[in-house]
């Protein structure tokens, strides 16, 4: 009797959870759309940067979190996207929306070409090969002056003028759009047949093949998707900062940053990379403001502390907390819950 009541209570709770999630999503969408009206230029820039890094972390999550391939060299696609946009806009005179989409596709196509040989490697060997690729593309960008202006870089036109808020606003919305698309894609990966294939590959690639999964094609598609969104983010970034050169477009520090964000947030989850981006960027800004001369050291210590306190990442911590809470609710006698 009591059990029946309790289980109906829990089912009710689940229904409440679902509708709460829906309400939360709508509220979040409204807030994100209105945010530029409330923020100063400084905070709007930081928020845009959070959106960019969240996109990069999320795109990385598709190939690394779901498929298990540590593609630290994803900066190659960021840079290719940025350069493709700059070249399409300044040399081919293309419109901005078309240039952004084509830049994403250029990064995806580049990934499709180099993906097959590199995806034969696994683990650290894959990681280092992607890093080498990224550095090689940087050298190529620096040396193919006829296409890229070499080390001089490319200057891009601005999209808006006026107050700092007005200048940043279009880039904010563009980044938001890219992030939403990337998260939607990741969500699809997390629930779809394709995603089951990727997760099987992550667990055991040989076994996955024996279960009928075309591993070569699946990982290639996963990486191409990742490259596409990374390229889109690179394209919007290039528009935003209006000047790119090989050092800034193929900057490995970006890779370090988005991977730290995704890892601290939680790989293989949809919310993790976004939360991680928010956490790290806010932390960085707060620490930068408070400890100017030693902000790197303090941030370093903070990162170490986070790892020591939650070695499984933010999402793991939340999941564990939630599981504990559920267990407490589900066992009314609470006999075995208190340990």
């Amino acid at each position: 009797m009591l059990e029946a009541r309790l289980s109906s209570f829990l089912r009710e709770g689940q229904r409440l959870q679902v509708s709460a999630a829906a309400v939360g999503a709508v509220a979040l969408a409204v807030v994100l759309l209105l945010l530029p009206n409330w923020l100063s230029g400084y905070w709007l820039r930081i928020t845009t940067s959070v959106l960019m890094f969240a996109t990069l972390a999320q795109a990385w999550n598709i190939i690394t979190g779901f498929t298990g391939y540590p593609a630290f060299g994803n900066t190659a696609f960021f840079g290719v996207g940025a350069y493709a946009l700059a070249i399409l806009v300044t040399k081919a005179g293309l419109g901005i929306p078309a240039a952004i989409v084509l830049a994403g596709l250029a990064a995806a196509a580049f990934c499709a070409v180099i993906g097959l040989p590199i995806l034969r490697l696994q683990g650290h060997y894959f990681a280092i090969a992607t890093l080498a690729l990224s550095l090689f593309v940087r050298e190529a960008a620096a040396n193919l002056g006829w296409l890229t202006n070499g080390a001089i870089g490319i200057v891009l036109p601005t999209l808006a003028s006026g107050s700092p808020e007005e200048i940043t606003r279009p880039y904010y919305y563009l980044m938001l759009l890219v992030l939403v698309a990337c998260c939607a894609c990741t969500w699809w990966v997390s629930v779809s047949r394709f995603g089951y294939g990727l997760r099987s590959i992550k667990a055991d690639e040989d076994a996955a093949a024996c279960f009928g999964i075309n591993t070569t094609l699946s990982k290639l598609v996963a990486w191409v998707l990742s490259a596409f969104f990374t390229g889109l983010a690179g394209a919007v970034w290039a528009l935003w900062i209006t000047f790119i050169d090989p050092q800034s477009a193929f900057n490995l520090a970006i890779a370090v940053k988005f991977s730290v964000m995704a890892l601290l947030g939680g790989l293989g989850t949809v919310a993790g990379p976004v939360l991680g981006a928010l956490l790290v960027e806010v932390l960085t800004q707060a620490i930068w403001g408070a400890f100017y001369a030693v902000h790197l050291a303090v941030l370093g210590l903070a990162i170490m502390l986070i790892v020591l306190l939650m070695p499984g990442g933010l999402m793991q911590l939340l999941r564990d907390r939630l599981a504990t809470a559920k267990r407490l609710l589900a066992t009314p006698s609470a006999k075995e819950s208190w340990r």
């Binding site: 790989l267 790197l296 050291a297 210590l301 903070a302 790892v307």
Partner: peptide
């Protein structure tokens, strides 16, 4: 006992600290 990526980040934090120091 954590994943190799977590130790990677940990030493990354250590690296930032040492450079700043």
């Amino acid at each position: 006992h954590a994943s190799i990526f977590m130790t990677f980040i940990l030493t990354f934090g250590l690296d930032m600290f040492l450079i700043n120091a």
